[in-house]
Design a protein around this nucleic acid. Sequence first.
DNA 1: CTGAAAGCGCTTACAG
DNA 2: CTGAAAGCGCTTACAG
Lengths: 350, 350
Amino acid sequence: MVTIGDVARAAGVSRSTASYALSGKRTISMEVRERVNDAVRELGYTPNAGARALATSQTMVIGLLAQFLEDEFAPAMLQYMLGVSDTARELGYDILLVTEADGARALRRITDSQMVDGVVLLNVAQDDVRLPILRAAPQPGALVGLPGDCSGLDVFDLDFEEAGRIMVNHMHRLGHRELILVSQPEHVVERGGAYVWRLQDAALQQARVRGIRLHTAFGESRQPAVGRTLHALLDSHPSATGLLLNNEAAAAALPTVLHERGLTVPADLSVIGRYSDEFARTFSLSFSSIESAPDRLGRMAVRQLVRRIESSDTAAEPYVVRFISPELVDRGSTAAPGSRRDGSHSRRPQ
Amino acid sequence: MVTIGDVARAAGVSRSTASYALSGKRTISMEVRERVNDAVRELGYTPNAGARALATSQTMVIGLLAQFLEDEFAPAMLQYMLGVSDTARELGYDILLVTEADGARALRRITDSQMVDGVVLLNVAQDDVRLPILRAAPQPGALVGLPGDCSGLDVFDLDFEEAGRIMVNHMHRLGHRELILVSQPEHVVERGGAYVWRLQDAALQQARVRGIRLHTAFGESRQPAVGRTLHALLDSHPSATGLLLNNEAAAAALPTVLHERGLTVPADLSVIGRYSDEFARTFSLSFSSIESAPDRLGRMAVRQLVRRIESSDTAAEPYVVRFISPELVDRGSTAAPGSRRDGSHSRRPQ
DNA sequence: CTGAAAGCGCTTACAG
DNA sequence: CTGAAAGCGCTTACAG
């Protein structure tokens, strides 16, 4: 491999001059700079990342901790990852992707060994075991997802409470008075997925305010289980006229369930989901939904992280907790409650 | 940060002895080893990755080049990524994730700067611009996807030709004589997505052998376009009794299309897709499919890559091109052609 | 405006 | 069985 020594020799200057010519950190005569640049081009020189990291204590790499848990919907995670990855690259950073099941151990490994200048944590739980490790690390961290304790960290999340209220209000405005909310699997709640209860609690509260009956349930993350749950819920609450989904797998399974029951949206049932537009297009979901804006969240997290990495007086700036305001994307899946939920169209096998 | 010098001082030995005690690369007295290990534990020592990389010329990092192109189905990529990531970690490697649009430039950057010990390329095209760069790089590379020229690289892919034959043969055995094959968008072909024509050509060939009429078409990668294409194809070929899908987006869109047409699978139409079981469960697809085995392919690529990274005489072992034999996962979506394709069930809105 | 030298934190021949 | 020293390829005060 060609080193900066080779470049210096070819340009007839010292290694320090070659280095300065490339970094621009001190004034270099035009002529020398030209010679150095020529040498770089001819020899095909690229600085060795390890050596540079050792000398500067900067790796220009950001750690991305993603978790792919059995009971969550993997593709939703991808959107956040791409938001983080693309933004990092724009800002000059590469991404070290960590998908280990034991996120705490992995986090310790990459921070202790100084492989990264900072870390983005996805899918943060209420009482996330990775947080104490992140706080103790010398590198800054940014979270996507709201934990119970935000101290010492920058946090970004969708305003799930507002999302719950918007769902209920929208349905109320159309005249619905009985709704079903399908959340993520109960395991997600047990693991501390705060966004589940943040949306649900706010929706229940708002339903009370509006005088709406709101039935809540946890849905599975896979077929055929989640499909059966949807059937059971529709069976149990025949007078419900609207369905709210805070569960991507349920949204993906719903078209088939509707088909099996012979139901049409929104004539027979109004539906609002909570997922990204990208997700809707990819999975052919034509339900209106609260935009979860994973790309924006990933982008915001990286921007703030890089700001903190590059700010001289670390931890001088106050930490931020920032919520994205949810927006309802109308895909025409809601309407005034119809009169067609009489079961006559039902073609569900036994 | 605590360095090996701190450990050595605490243990009362030289830095080299501390290093050897940790690496086990020469015999160390029990007593000294104990003292060193105690010091490591007390001080919380972890080697600095950059320094180690500089000294050993090994980063213990593998580059993963994924492409998320507008006209391809992003979630399918995720499965390959996880197969690669999990296997790499098992073998002691971390993953540098590269998602840049300009894959060639990115590849050059991470190999030239020696950020990685080797590279896995996903979504390899017939005449992939990244390959010349990879061949010129000092690090070895493994491909998932078959290019036109495999020289100097280890290549892994599904046997798409056999997949095409299996689809046709399976339908033929059930009595089908007219089929439709929906491939990826034409853009994918133009970009050199060889798997598209490998499957299609083999299917056409086999259809000829079996005396089957096979209509082929390219499908879009998004709704609502791909749904419209499916409708149009079913309209144009009313006597076709089976549908073959080499297009994940089409598979995801099909349940809604079937619903709109009032068709039941397999009574009205037999369907075989080509995607992973993981994909089927995640997206609630109950069509039989050729397992695309992304996790296995990712795993094989990393295993071979690591073998090559760690083999002393690089390029001494011959390069391999290995195909996974496709297997049909029966989810009950095929049957003998029925008599219900008479249009009487059609409920498609004009 | 430029050069010689020290140092980042490791590993590993070279000596003993 | 252990230590002193060189070296990996950079960057950056320190001198001039």
